[in-house]
Write a protein that binds this DNA or RNA. Structure first.
Lengths: 146, 146
DNA sequence: ACATAGAGGACCGGAGAGGTCCTGTAAATA
DNA sequence: TATTTACAGGACCTCTCCGGTCCTCTATGT
């Protein structure tokens, strides 16, 4: 089913949760785990990775927590996914040339590149802000989706 | 990396190989395995599934083999993928409602639906014929891809 | 009848996803 | 400065499921 890993799925949910706060303030991992009802250890793991990739900023200590590194409108969903499960690509050749043993004899590589790009661009166009906007449908009009 | 299963990957390659034959004639599994350099048992497995799903027609017996069930222009890549790894969807909720335990408390479900649909439509628009057309770029223009 | 090729399974090993836990370090408060 | 809280960065484990093989049965042509 062309599955997204749970790590990436959780990441999207958590980013959206942070963006839901109108002030985009700081929330700690435990709080986010409760809000999203996701297992706390996983939430910690995901938040750490998102921080390392520069999508979140963290604050240690007693009133520590996480906050969006940039306004939600400037964070594409594709970045969230790639931070957690590597580059968005359907096939190995879309990630790095030479990573597929069949590359020399493969006749469908070029088309796959186009498909990969089309999908990447779709995920580039959706931002974290779109995930929390109530009237999402409007925001998605530009995707050409009914 | 938002991975496609190898089964589906092989399926696409095999469908393309069948479409490359200008007469779209019948080819047996062994022959296709040699042409694509994929392991023969896997080729058999994939071809069987594609046949069960009505994308290929098969002929048993001494001059048996497989051929496209329809003209390549009428076979979207999305069908090939879904025949081999189930419905195209990034999240469980995109496959069947109620399949995700977090559904009641999840706030990003609606946006995911739109994203799922955008990606599905991308894969719907590409046909097996596009995979073998030399000047693929032209065929992909309609995807809005550079 | 016999050789060939597909149909439909069962079956197996290993990689990797999903999940937990532990130790270290930074910050705030008293 | 001691203590508590929370993030940082791993190691580590379990178990599912993917990738792959193989075997038996049935259909077809010679």
């Amino acid at each position: 089913m062309l599955r997204l890993s749970k790590l990436a799925d959780y990441g999207v949910v958590l980013m959206a949760e942070l963006a839901r706060d109108p002030e985009c303030g700081s929330h700690n991992a435990r709080e986010l785990a409760e809000l999203t009802r996701l297992p706390f250890p996983m939430v910690g793991k995901v938040l750490k990775r998102l921080t390392r990739d520069g999508l979140l900023v963290s604050q240690r200590g007693i009133h520590g927590g996480y906050a969006l590194a940039r306004p939600a409108e400037q964070i594409p969903v594709s970045k969230v996914i790639s931070a957690l499960e590597g580059p968005v690509a359907l096939t190995a050749c879309g990630v790095a040339p030479g990573s597929c043993e069949h590359e020399p004899s493969c006749h469908v590589r070029t088309p796959w590149e186009y498909i990969n790009r089309a999908i990447t661009e779709t995920l580039d166009r959706v931002t974290v802000a779109d995930l929390v906007r109530p009237a999402s449908a409007i925001a998605f009009a530009e995707l050409g989706v009914r």
